[in-house]
Design a protein around this nucleic acid. Structure first.
Lengths: 140, 140
DNA sequence: GTACGTGCAAAATGTTTGCATCATT
DNA sequence: AATGATGCAAACATTTTGCACGTAC
Protein backbone atom coordinates (compact mmCIF):
# COMPACT_ATOMS: atom_id res chain seq x y z
CA UNK A 1 0.00 0.00 0.00
CA UNK A 2 1.87 3.01 -1.30
CA UNK A 3 -1.08 5.15 -0.27
CA UNK A 4 0.49 6.32 2.94
CA UNK A 5 3.50 7.63 1.01
CA UNK A 6 1.18 9.81 -1.07
CA UNK A 7 -0.58 11.03 2.01
CA UNK A 8 2.72 11.97 3.61
CA UNK A 9 4.01 13.70 0.49
CA UNK A 10 0.86 15.78 0.28
CA UNK A 11 1.66 17.08 3.75
CA UNK A 12 5.37 17.53 3.16
CA UNK A 13 6.34 14.73 5.48
CA UNK A 14 9.32 12.56 4.66
CA UNK A 15 8.52 8.91 4.15
CA UNK A 16 10.76 7.15 6.61
CA UNK A 17 10.34 3.52 7.57
CA UNK A 18 9.51 4.56 11.14
CA UNK A 19 6.82 7.04 10.21
CA UNK A 20 5.18 4.73 7.74
CA UNK A 21 5.12 1.90 10.24
CA UNK A 22 3.75 4.14 12.97
CA UNK A 23 0.99 5.66 10.90
CA UNK A 24 -0.10 2.39 9.38
CA UNK A 25 -0.09 0.65 12.71
CA UNK A 26 -2.22 3.36 14.22
CA UNK A 27 -4.63 3.53 11.28
CA UNK A 28 -5.43 -0.17 11.57
CA UNK A 29 -6.68 0.04 15.10
CA UNK A 30 -9.98 0.96 16.65
CA UNK A 31 -8.62 1.21 20.11
CA UNK A 32 -6.36 4.16 20.66
CA UNK A 33 -2.92 3.30 21.92
CA UNK A 34 -0.67 5.44 24.06
CA UNK A 35 2.74 6.40 22.69
CA UNK A 36 4.31 3.60 24.69
CA UNK A 37 1.82 1.01 23.43
CA UNK A 38 2.24 2.15 19.86
CA UNK A 39 5.99 1.92 20.27
CA UNK A 40 5.78 -1.72 21.32
CA UNK A 41 3.29 -2.64 18.59
CA UNK A 42 5.09 -0.84 15.76
CA UNK A 43 8.49 -2.11 16.81
CA UNK A 44 7.70 -5.51 15.35
CA UNK A 45 7.22 -3.92 11.93
CA UNK A 46 10.31 -1.88 11.65
CA UNK A 47 13.78 -2.86 12.77
CA UNK A 48 14.90 0.38 14.27
CA UNK A 49 12.55 2.50 16.31
CA UNK A 50 12.88 4.59 19.43
CA UNK A 51 10.31 6.02 21.77
CA UNK A 52 11.55 9.54 21.03
CA UNK A 53 10.72 8.98 17.39
CA UNK A 54 7.25 7.84 18.32
CA UNK A 55 6.68 11.12 20.13
CA UNK A 56 8.26 13.18 17.35
CA UNK A 57 6.23 11.44 14.70
CA UNK A 58 2.92 11.63 16.52
CA UNK A 59 3.54 15.29 17.04
CA UNK A 60 4.30 15.84 13.36
CA UNK A 61 1.21 13.89 12.31
CA UNK A 62 -0.98 15.89 14.69
CA UNK A 63 0.42 19.13 13.33
CA UNK A 64 -0.67 18.34 9.78
CA UNK A 65 -4.00 16.93 10.94
CA UNK A 66 -3.47 13.26 10.09
CA UNK A 67 -3.70 12.19 13.71
CA UNK A 68 -5.62 13.40 16.71
CA UNK A 69 -4.39 13.39 20.27
CA UNK A 70 -7.08 12.24 22.68
CA UNK A 71 -7.21 13.58 26.20
CA UNK A 72 -7.24 11.25 29.19
CA UNK A 73 -7.27 11.75 32.93
CA UNK A 74 -4.23 9.70 33.79
CA UNK A 75 -1.45 11.64 32.18
CA UNK A 76 -0.75 9.39 29.22
CA UNK A 77 -2.40 10.56 26.04
CA UNK A 78 -3.87 8.35 23.39
CA UNK A 79 -3.84 8.75 19.63
CA UNK A 80 -6.36 8.27 16.82
CA UNK A 81 -5.72 8.18 13.09
CA UNK A 82 -9.41 8.79 12.41
CA UNK A 83 -9.68 12.56 12.63
CA UNK A 84 -13.39 12.78 11.90
CA UNK A 85 -15.77 13.74 14.69
CA UNK A 86 -16.95 10.53 16.28
CA UNK A 87 -17.81 9.40 19.78
CA UNK A 88 -15.48 7.46 22.04
CA UNK A 89 -15.97 5.30 25.06
CA UNK A 90 -13.47 5.93 27.80
CA UNK A 91 -13.28 3.40 30.59
CA UNK A 92 -13.24 4.94 33.98
CA UNK A 93 -10.81 2.60 35.68
CA UNK A 94 -8.10 2.23 33.05
CA UNK A 95 -8.59 5.33 30.88
CA UNK A 96 -8.60 3.10 27.82
CA UNK A 97 -10.46 4.62 24.89
CA UNK A 98 -12.21 2.82 22.08
CA UNK A 99 -14.51 3.69 19.22
CA UNK A 100 -18.21 3.21 19.53
CA UNK A 101 -19.03 0.52 16.95
CA UNK A 102 -19.40 2.23 13.58
CA UNK A 103 -23.14 1.86 13.09
CA UNK A 104 -24.05 2.96 16.58
CA UNK A 105 -21.52 5.77 16.40
CA UNK A 106 -23.20 7.22 13.31
CA UNK A 107 -26.57 6.99 15.02
CA UNK A 108 -25.28 8.87 18.07
CA UNK A 109 -24.27 11.84 15.96
CA UNK A 110 -27.97 12.40 15.23
CA UNK A 111 -28.92 12.50 18.90
CA UNK A 112 -28.80 15.01 21.73
CA UNK A 113 -26.58 14.13 24.71
CA UNK A 114 -29.27 12.60 26.95
CA UNK A 115 -30.45 10.36 24.16
CA UNK A 116 -26.89 9.28 23.42
CA UNK A 117 -26.51 7.94 26.93
CA UNK A 118 -29.77 6.02 26.69
CA UNK A 119 -28.76 4.51 23.36
CA UNK A 120 -25.32 3.47 24.55
CA UNK A 121 -26.63 1.81 27.66
CA UNK A 122 -29.31 -0.08 25.80
CA UNK A 123 -27.12 -1.16 22.88
CA UNK A 124 -23.88 -2.03 24.63
CA UNK A 125 -23.33 -4.00 27.77
CA UNK A 126 -21.80 -1.16 29.77
CA UNK A 127 -22.83 1.24 32.48
CA UNK A 128 -22.41 4.90 31.58
CA UNK A 129 -21.20 6.96 34.52
CA UNK A 130 -20.75 10.26 32.80
CA UNK A 131 -20.03 12.10 29.64
CA UNK A 132 -17.30 14.50 28.80
CA UNK A 133 -17.63 16.76 25.89
CA UNK A 134 -15.20 19.35 24.84
CA UNK A 135 -15.43 21.79 22.02
CA UNK A 136 -11.88 22.38 20.86
CA UNK A 137 -11.30 25.97 19.93
CA UNK A 138 -8.77 28.52 18.91
CA UNK A 139 -8.91 32.02 20.34
CA UNK A 140 -8.85 34.95 17.99
CA UNK B 1 -21.28 28.89 54.71
CA UNK B 2 -21.37 25.72 56.78
CA UNK B 3 -22.91 23.98 53.81
CA UNK B 4 -19.68 22.41 52.69
CA UNK B 5 -19.28 20.76 56.09
CA UNK B 6 -22.67 19.09 55.68
CA UNK B 7 -21.78 17.98 52.19
CA UNK B 8 -18.54 16.46 53.43
CA UNK B 9 -20.21 14.72 56.36
CA UNK B 10 -22.77 13.18 54.05
CA UNK B 11 -19.90 11.58 52.18
CA UNK B 12 -17.92 10.59 55.25
CA UNK B 13 -15.17 13.05 54.55
CA UNK B 14 -13.46 14.76 57.45
CA UNK B 15 -13.80 18.52 57.50
CA UNK B 16 -10.25 19.77 57.59
CA UNK B 17 -9.31 23.37 56.90
CA UNK B 18 -7.41 22.26 53.80
CA UNK B 19 -10.25 20.30 52.28
CA UNK B 20 -12.82 22.99 52.94
CA UNK B 21 -10.61 25.65 51.40
CA UNK B 22 -9.88 23.49 48.36
CA UNK B 23 -13.46 22.52 47.66
CA UNK B 24 -14.82 26.03 48.16
CA UNK B 25 -12.12 27.55 46.01
CA UNK B 26 -12.86 25.11 43.23
CA UNK B 27 -16.63 25.49 43.48
CA UNK B 28 -16.42 29.25 42.97
CA UNK B 29 -14.70 29.02 39.63
CA UNK B 30 -15.91 28.54 36.10
CA UNK B 31 -12.52 27.88 34.70
CA UNK B 32 -11.05 24.58 35.76
CA UNK B 33 -7.70 24.82 37.46
CA UNK B 34 -4.94 22.24 37.47
CA UNK B 35 -3.79 20.87 40.83
CA UNK B 36 -0.88 23.27 40.80
CA UNK B 37 -3.09 26.27 40.05
CA UNK B 38 -5.58 25.29 42.71
CA UNK B 39 -2.73 24.91 45.16
CA UNK B 40 -1.58 28.48 44.57
CA UNK B 41 -5.09 29.93 44.70
CA UNK B 42 -6.21 28.04 47.80
CA UNK B 43 -2.99 28.68 49.65
CA UNK B 44 -4.08 32.26 50.32
CA UNK B 45 -7.14 30.94 52.20
CA UNK B 46 -5.55 28.45 54.48
CA UNK B 47 -2.28 28.85 56.30
CA UNK B 48 -0.93 25.38 55.86
CA UNK B 49 -1.32 23.53 52.58
CA UNK B 50 0.88 21.25 50.56
CA UNK B 51 0.65 20.11 46.97
CA UNK B 52 0.41 16.48 48.11
CA UNK B 53 -2.71 17.37 50.04
CA UNK B 54 -4.20 18.98 46.98
CA UNK B 55 -3.74 15.73 45.08
CA UNK B 56 -5.00 13.61 47.98
CA UNK B 57 -8.04 15.80 48.44
CA UNK B 58 -8.97 16.02 44.79
CA UNK B 59 -8.71 12.28 44.62
CA UNK B 60 -10.96 11.84 47.64
CA UNK B 61 -13.50 14.31 46.26
CA UNK B 62 -13.54 12.54 42.90
CA UNK B 63 -14.07 9.20 44.61
CA UNK B 64 -17.26 10.36 46.28
CA UNK B 65 -18.43 12.21 43.18
CA UNK B 66 -18.15 15.79 44.42
CA UNK B 67 -15.52 16.67 41.85
CA UNK B 68 -14.80 15.61 38.32
CA UNK B 69 -11.38 15.21 36.79
CA UNK B 70 -11.27 16.62 33.27
CA UNK B 71 -9.01 15.09 30.66
CA UNK B 72 -6.50 17.19 28.76
CA UNK B 73 -3.86 16.46 26.17
CA UNK B 74 -0.90 17.98 27.91
CA UNK B 75 -0.47 15.78 30.93
CA UNK B 76 -1.83 18.05 33.61
CA UNK B 77 -5.43 17.35 34.50
CA UNK B 78 -8.03 19.92 35.39
CA UNK B 79 -10.79 19.75 37.95
CA UNK B 80 -14.44 20.76 38.08
CA UNK B 81 -16.73 20.98 41.11
CA UNK B 82 -19.78 20.98 38.85
CA UNK B 83 -20.38 17.30 38.23
CA UNK B 84 -23.43 17.70 36.02
CA UNK B 85 -23.15 16.97 32.32
CA UNK B 86 -22.29 20.21 30.60
CA UNK B 87 -20.14 21.24 27.64
CA UNK B 88 -16.65 22.64 27.91
CA UNK B 89 -14.46 24.65 25.65
CA UNK B 90 -10.88 23.48 25.55
CA UNK B 91 -8.35 25.77 23.96
CA UNK B 92 -6.08 24.02 21.56
CA UNK B 93 -2.87 25.85 22.33
CA UNK B 94 -2.91 25.97 26.13
CA UNK B 95 -5.28 23.13 27.03
CA UNK B 96 -7.18 25.52 29.28
CA UNK B 97 -10.78 24.50 29.83
CA UNK B 98 -13.74 26.72 30.60
CA UNK B 99 -17.48 26.39 30.83
CA UNK B 100 -19.67 27.40 27.96
CA UNK B 101 -21.69 30.34 29.32
CA UNK B 102 -24.65 28.93 31.23
CA UNK B 103 -27.46 29.89 28.90
CA UNK B 104 -25.70 28.73 25.75
CA UNK B 105 -24.56 25.58 27.53
CA UNK B 106 -28.15 24.61 28.32
CA UNK B 107 -29.14 25.25 24.72
CA UNK B 108 -26.34 23.01 23.44
CA UNK B 109 -27.65 20.04 25.41
CA UNK B 110 -30.74 20.12 23.19
CA UNK B 111 -28.73 19.90 19.99
CA UNK B 112 -26.97 17.23 17.99
CA UNK B 113 -23.17 17.55 17.60
CA UNK B 114 -23.11 19.33 14.23
CA UNK B 115 -25.60 21.91 15.43
CA UNK B 116 -23.58 22.48 18.58
CA UNK B 117 -20.57 23.51 16.57
CA UNK B 118 -22.64 25.92 14.48
CA UNK B 119 -24.16 27.47 17.59
CA UNK B 120 -20.83 27.90 19.36
CA UNK B 121 -19.20 29.54 16.39
CA UNK B 122 -22.06 31.93 15.83
CA UNK B 123 -22.57 32.84 19.50
CA UNK B 124 -18.98 33.10 20.70
CA UNK B 125 -16.04 34.76 19.09
CA UNK B 126 -13.99 31.61 18.61
CA UNK B 127 -13.05 29.21 15.86
CA UNK B 128 -13.98 25.60 16.54
CA UNK B 129 -11.34 23.19 15.26
CA UNK B 130 -12.79 19.98 16.56
CA UNK B 131 -14.90 18.26 19.11
CA UNK B 132 -14.05 15.52 21.49
CA UNK B 133 -16.72 13.52 23.10
CA UNK B 134 -16.25 10.69 25.42
CA UNK B 135 -18.83 8.51 27.02
CA UNK B 136 -17.39 7.48 30.35
CA UNK B 137 -18.22 3.90 31.19
CA UNK B 138 -17.64 1.09 33.55
CA UNK B 139 -17.22 -2.43 32.27
CA UNK B 140 -19.33 -5.18 33.73
C1' DG C 1 -7.70 7.18 71.79
C1' DT C 2 -8.07 5.85 67.14
C1' DA C 3 -8.53 6.43 62.54
C1' DC C 4 -7.64 9.28 59.13
C1' DG C 5 -5.41 13.54 56.96
C1' DT C 6 -1.23 16.30 56.27
C1' DG C 7 3.36 17.50 54.64
C1' DC C 8 7.84 16.45 53.41
C1' DA C 9 11.09 14.29 50.48
C1' DA C 10 11.92 10.73 47.39
C1' DA C 11 10.37 7.95 43.62
C1' DA C 12 7.75 6.93 39.63
C1' DT C 13 5.72 8.10 35.28
C1' DG C 14 5.22 10.30 30.86
C1' DT C 15 7.14 13.59 27.74
C1' DT C 16 10.59 16.81 25.82
C1' DT C 17 15.14 18.28 24.56
C1' DG C 18 20.11 18.63 22.73
C1' DC C 19 23.03 16.79 19.81
C1' DA C 20 25.70 13.62 16.90
C1' DT C 21 24.61 10.49 13.27
C1' DC C 22 21.93 8.91 9.39
C1' DA C 23 18.48 8.87 5.47
C1' DT C 24 15.38 11.15 2.23
C1' DT C 25 14.83 14.34 -1.09
C1' DA D 1 24.72 18.12 -1.03
C1' DA D 2 21.36 19.82 2.08
C1' DT D 3 17.62 19.43 4.90
C1' DG D 4 15.28 17.09 8.02
C1' DA D 5 14.57 12.57 10.89
C1' DT D 6 16.43 9.29 14.22
C1' DG D 7 18.09 7.60 18.66
C1' DC D 8 20.35 8.07 22.80
C1' DA D 9 20.72 10.03 27.29
C1' DA D 10 19.72 13.58 30.13
C1' DA D 11 16.34 16.94 31.66
C1' DC D 12 11.77 18.12 32.77
C1' DA D 13 6.94 18.14 34.52
C1' DT D 14 3.32 16.04 36.84
C1' DT D 15 1.68 12.82 39.97
C1' DT D 16 2.26 9.15 43.49
C1' DT D 17 4.20 7.08 47.52
C1' DG D 18 6.11 6.10 52.38
C1' DC D 19 6.25 7.60 56.65
C1' DA D 20 6.33 10.56 60.90
C1' DC D 21 3.44 13.77 62.87
C1' DG D 22 -0.95 16.13 63.73
C1' DT D 23 -6.05 16.64 63.95
C1' DA D 24 -11.09 15.43 63.64
C1' DC D 25 -14.17 12.51 65.34
Amino acid sequence: MTDTRDLFSQHNLRCTAQRLALYETLAERHDHPTAEELYRIAKSRTEKLSLATVYNTLDALCMVGLVRKLPTTNGSCRYDADTSIHPHIRYRDTDEIEDVPEKLGAKLLELVPDEMIEQIESELNIHVTGMNFQIIAQRH
